[in-house]
Nucleic acid binder design. Structure first.
Length: 533
RNA sequence: GCGCCCGUAGCUCAGUUGGAUAGAGCAACGGACUACGAAUCCGUAGGUUGGAGGUUCGAAUCCUCUCGGGCGCACCA
């Protein structure tokens, strides 16, 4: 039985109320308020007609008898504070250092088959830093959702068809002509980046025939994207090609199915999706088939998302860039027509600014001003880049401080966490040398710093669960920084390996548990925990 | 004009979904290596949570208005 259920039962037996709402549990800021607290008495006060402190007193008295869970339960000014017992901490630490950490993490799903689609950048140029952020967030979330029990697949949707590809090819053709001394201009709406000049040179060298140019540039850029992602430690379970989707007949089928639902009409030579009749609040209808007979991007995208659900995914998360937020509503609407609206969510990433020498550099792929992921990885470690991308809420703008990321020391937060791990492994090596093995921590829990660190370790399973629930890896990065801080502090106050072998064993147990948690947490973020630095 | 996101310490950001005295890192200043790694630690300083109302035992968090910033609003993708 969890704490929440225990509290509920105490409420029932004290007041005869079957309390169904969530029990607000939180970690108090001050250690003397216990390991975990609840403010439920404030909510109950009105219902039972007595002041919060009386209510909390009553509940606390009931819960205090649960000695198998708590060492102490007290009511203070309406709050109820719980203190875990020594046996709780002892078992926890023992479990963590004996490899049982993954099993301690709450299961939020019993193997639901779900998908995260991320990056999905058009193969019209190298991956930029927003894609890099998506890659870091997406791949971490895949790991994290797996850990809490989902059967999750990562997918990349490759827009290898349509107008942008035509523009890409035309831009390349223009570059080739320019190199051959002919008069040619890159289309105004085309791709002006320098990288196409390099590709143009290659195409000339390889003697790629004109009618193969489009396929050639696509496969060239796509394989480069794959290489870059590999370099960044990101691997997808599946790649879906827009071109194949179009030729599969699925888009045609989609339009006719929408038609059957009376959500399609013709106007001005185009075929429209009647969003406004599906939802009166919707502002406009959207084109499915353009007057030139081509499917719109939207039509193909609906077919793609429908296909995901037909492949059996119970939930689909898309990670989209800041320029796509206008598309969320219409995709939801389209999926509503098929009953999948609630099984679909978008995680919207905000912009990334590269900051160098205190100045922001804005990026635009079409204008050709960009910092690519490859360039970034030439300069800094993939682990450093990942941590920087993950150490912020997805919804907030990210200032990527390039100068800070370059620093291999001091203020770089990644090394702070890595160093904590390496330090502990170093202690472990010394312990082995002296023949000291992990021992009981029971006698050490009275040391405030020791207890504090043990509490921090105890938080980890819930932190992973929260990260998964909120789909915010930054919850985990923040925790790892806090854990590392607590460890470094502890390290300076107490020596682990001393003449007192029994005490050393207990100390060793705790710091090894810290190392295990750091290693596991970093692994979920796709970052390595080094034995030495 | 309409819609979405964001305004918290000089800077970059947290704040456990409405709880106890709003916290970190960087930058600044002062200190700590004769013991497990100084990529570390300790201390000092820094705030009208953009502003004004409202909801209640209680608001950075929820509602309304307002000011400032970002991004969307194609028969482009």
């Amino acid at each position: 039985m969890g704490i929440e259920d225990a509290v509920r039962e105490a409420i029932r037996s004290s007041f005869g109320i079957d309390y169904k709402e969530a029990i607000p549990l939180f970690r108090p800021k001050k250690p003397e308020f216990g390991d975990i607290s609840t403010s439920v008495a404030f909510q109950l006060a009105k219902k039972v007609g007595s002041p919060p402190d009386v209510v909390s007193e009553k509940i606390a008295r009931k819960l205090a008898s649960r000695t198998e869970m708590f060492e102490n339960v007290s009511a203070q000014g309406g709050y109820i504070n719980f203190h875990f017992g020594k046996t709780f901490f002892s078992k926890l630490i023992k479990d963590v250092i004996s490899g049982k950490l993954p099993s301690l993490i709450p299961k939020l799903s019993g193997g639901e088959y779900v998908q995260i689609e991320y990056v999905s950048a058009n193969p019209t140029g190298p991956l930029n830093v927003v894609s890099a952020r998506a890659a870091a967030v997406g791949s971490s979330l895949v790991n994290i959702l797996k850990r809490v029990g989902y059967d999750v697949k990562g997918e990349y949707y490759l827009n290898d068809a349509g107008n942008q590809i035509r523009l890409l090819t035309e831009s390349l053709e223009a570059r080739i002509k320019q190199l051959q001394g002919e008069e040619a201009e890159v289309p105004k709406e085309g791709y002006h980046g320098e990288y196409l000049l390099d590709y143009a040179r290659e195409a000339i060298d390889e003697g790629v025939p004109d009618d193969r140019l489009s396929d050639w540039i696509l496969s060239r850029i796509t394989s480069e994207i794959k290489e870059t992602l590999e370099r960044f430690g990101v691997h997808f379970d599946n790649w879906v090609s827009e071109r194949e989707l179009r030729s599969s007949g699925k888009v045609k089928k989609l339009v006719s199915e929408l038609d059957k639902k009376h959500l399609v009409y013709k106007k001005n030579g185009a075929v429209w999706f009647a969003a406004t009749s599906l939802d009166p609040k919707s502002e406009q209808d959207y084109v499915l088939v353009k007057s030139d007979g081509e499917y719109s991007y939207f039509a193909v995208d609906i077919a793609y998302h429908l296909d995901k659900f037909q492949r059996g995914f119970a939930h689909v998360w898309d990670i989209w860039g800041p320029d796509h937020h206008g598309h969320i509503k219409r995709m939801q609407l389209a999926l509503r027509a098929f009953g999948y609206e609630k099984a679909f969510s978008v995680i919207l990433l905000q912009q990334v600014n590269i900051v160098e020498e205190g100045k922001r550099r804005k990026m635009s792929k079409r204008r050709g001003e960009l910092v690519t992921l490859n360039e970034l990885l030439d300069e800094i470690d993939a682990d450093v880049a990942r941590f920087f991308f993950l150490d912020r809420r997805a919804g907030s703008h990210l200032d990527f401080d390039l100068d800070l990321a370059r620093k291999e020391s001091e203020e770089n937060p990644v090394y702070y966490v890595k160093y904590a791990h390496a330090r502990i492994r170093s202690i472990e090596r010394l312990a082995k040398l002296r023949g000291i093995t992990p021992g009981s921590i029971e006698n050490l829990l009275e040391i405030p710093e020791f207890l504090h660190l043990a509490r921090r370790v105890a938080e980890y399973p819930d932190i992973v669960a929260r990260t998964a629930r909120e789909l915010e890896p930054h919850v985990l990065t923040d925790y790892l920084l806090a854990l590392s801080r607590d460890f470094h502090h502890f390290y300076h106050v107490y020596r682990v390996i001393t003449e007192d072998r029994e005490r050393s064993g207990g100390m060793l147990s705790l710091v090894l548990a810290v190392a295990e948690v750091i290693k596991d947490g970093l692994a979920l973020l796709g970052i390595e925990a080094p034995e030495r630095m």
